[in-house]
């Protein structure tokens, strides 16, 4: 179940990058590789890539917490530790914005709060990118019913699809994290 993620290239790392990129159309838009994003977010940390197959009960729990479809039972959290303590857990969520994909790295800290949201790939035209004064609404938030559009999270004028895609991605990731948290401690 558990595999070490080693820098710079391992079979797992290569597979992750390849899978990530195979989901993208040929045109550009990749800002960082998975490896780069992790190394920058967690300097001097040990990063362990986990492969988790959610049970039916865990899938149901995640869906219930997020109110968003969990598309796959296979999840790959990256757990960063330093001196034996968890610094954060990163998830990569690939989702469709309009017709093309976006990949977000969402880092959750040891208190289950969002620590960093970084766009590592975006293939729609730039006007669909999340806009100023919007993304940061998620920073420091915990998952609850209010972490949703038209509640704590304002919509993005003229870019509802982007707002929906990002909000869903963050809810999905936080729900998965809460479901798996107990199993992620190395």
């Amino acid at each position: 179940m558990r595999k070490k993620f080693r820098h710079p290239v391992t079979l797992w790392g290569l597979a992750a990058v390849t899978l990530l990129l195979m989901a993208f159309p040929a045109r550009g838009g990749v800002l960082l590789t998975v490896d780069e994003a992790l190394r920058l977010a967690f300097p001097d940390c040990q990063i362990t890539r986990k492969t988790v197959y959610l049970t039916r009960n865990q899938l149901a729990q995640a869906a219930s917490l997020s109110d968003v479809e969990t598309r796959s039972a296979l999840v790959n959290p990256y757990v960063a530790t330093k001196n034996g303590r968890i610094v954060g857990v990163a998830y990569f969520d690939v989702h469709t914005v309009r017709t093309l994909t976006e990949t977000l790295m969402i880092v959750i800290d040891a208190e289950n709060r969002i620590q960093r949201i970084e766009i590592i790939a975006f293939h729609e035209p730039r006007e669909y990118l999340p806009r100023p004064a919007w993304l940061q609404q998620f920073a420091g938030q915990q998952l609850d019913d209010e972490l949703a559009l038209k509640r704590k999270i304002r919509n993005m004028t003229g870019a509802t699809l982007t707002a929906r895609a990002v909000t869903d991605a963050i809810r999905r990731v936080m729900a998965l994290h809460l479901t798996l948290k107990g199993t992620l401690i190395p």
């Binding site: 390849t18 990749v30 800002l31 590789t33 790939a121 990118l129 993304l135």
Partner: peptide
């Protein structure tokens, strides 16, 4: 595809390389 992954959003002009990061 993997090769293009190794140089994401990289613009090479002479000897310089450009990187773009987007965060909240």
């Amino acid at each position: 595809t993997v090769w293009s992954a190794c140089s994401p959003q990289t613009v090479r002009q002479d000897t310089s390389v450009t990187v773009e990061r987007r965060l909240a």
